[in-house]
Simulated scan of single mutants.
Amino acid sequence: MATIRTEWEIRDERFRGIGGDRFVRVLFDGGRWLEGPAYSPAWRSLLFSDIPNDRVLRYDETTGAVGVWREPAHYANGRTLDRAGRIVSCEHGSRSVTRVEPDGTRTVLADAWDGHRLNSPNDVVARADGSIWFTDPSYGIDTVYEGHRAETETGGCHVYRVGSDGTVARVAEDFDRPNGLAFSADEQTLYVTDTGRRHLRRFSAGTAGDDAPVLSGGDVIAECDAGGYDGIRVDAAGRIWGAAADGLHCLAPDGTLLGKLRLPEICSNLTFGGPRGNTLFVTATNTLYAVMVNVTGARYPAGR
């Protein structure tokens, strides 16, 4: 297994104690544009998307093997696990958010809002109340590279929520290309990246439950200095980790850039996983990387 030396760049003294392995493992390097990593503790495996090749791959942590999990895959992008450990995915090709049941059955959770087809759901998170939150930029309908060319029907690119009753609600607007999203550990704050505008926004998510209000706030708390922020995750200390053109950026909850893990490719997404939740899995252009660190991910439903 190939490795590269880790390069931690300190921007703030609060980042100095963060580190881990002195090397980053290369787990797979045969993709075209990798995305959507999600770790299953039950399977000891990581699922991730190779969008242009229309397949979902599976890395087996116990053997180190990478194989095809689903192909074709409706040009799947981001995914997460819900409280029951089921896989929830965003699919560019079907323009929907879907869930895979334990027996392999695929269930559509959302494919339209107010009678209009969604653009191309991109990334998704699950909340403890059973709701599913996702971003809907137009990457999958802009060209045929990551989906099928089509016209938008929703009047723009927005953030949506699927309630436990199946109702799809638009919860945030005023984006160019909403992309990655992540809840704080207490689920009262939702962070959302806008890759088109190269910044990170912070929203108040209100009280959990199907009567939760539309997101409030939405202040820009960070500007990306290397491309635009893509996927994000939150660690147990509340820090935000964001994928960028030069690696992973680690931000304080107020948006202060604490430091970076430099990587040689444009990074698209990341997740915490491994038996103790302290392995960072990173999708970056055609490569899947992993590095064990001395921080753990915030405990999302059925995962990290």
Rank of each mutant, 00 (worst) to 15 (best):
T3C: 06
T3E: 14
E13C: 05
G19T: 06
G19I: 11
G19A: 06
D21G: 11
F23M: 07
F28Q: 00
R32D: 15
W33I: 05
E35S: 09
E35L: 15
P41E: 07
F48W: 05
D50M: 01
I51L: 12
I51H: 01
P52F: 14
P52Y: 10
N53F: 04
D60W: 15
V68C: 05
H74I: 03
H74T: 09
L81N: 02
G85L: 11
C90K: 01
C90H: 00
C90D: 00
H92K: 03
G93P: 00
S96C: 14
E101R: 15
G104E: 13
G104D: 07
T107H: 14
A110I: 04
A110S: 12
D114T: 10
D114M: 09
N119Y: 03
P121R: 02
I132C: 03
I132Y: 01
T135Q: 03
S138Y: 07
Y139D: 11
E146N: 12
T154W: 03
C157P: 07
C157R: 14
V159W: 02
Y160V: 09
G163C: 11
S164E: 04
D176P: 01
G180R: 07
S184P: 03
T189L: 02
T189M: 09
G196D: 10
R202N: 04
R202C: 06
G206D: 08
D211W: 03
V214E: 15
L215R: 00
L215T: 00
G217A: 13
D225Q: 14
Y229P: 02
A237G: 05
G242N: 09
A244H: 10
D254L: 12
G255T: 09
P264Y: 08
P264V: 07
P275Y: 07
N278R: 12
F281S: 01
A284G: 06
T285W: 12
M292E: 15
T296R: 04
G297Q: 05
G303I: 04
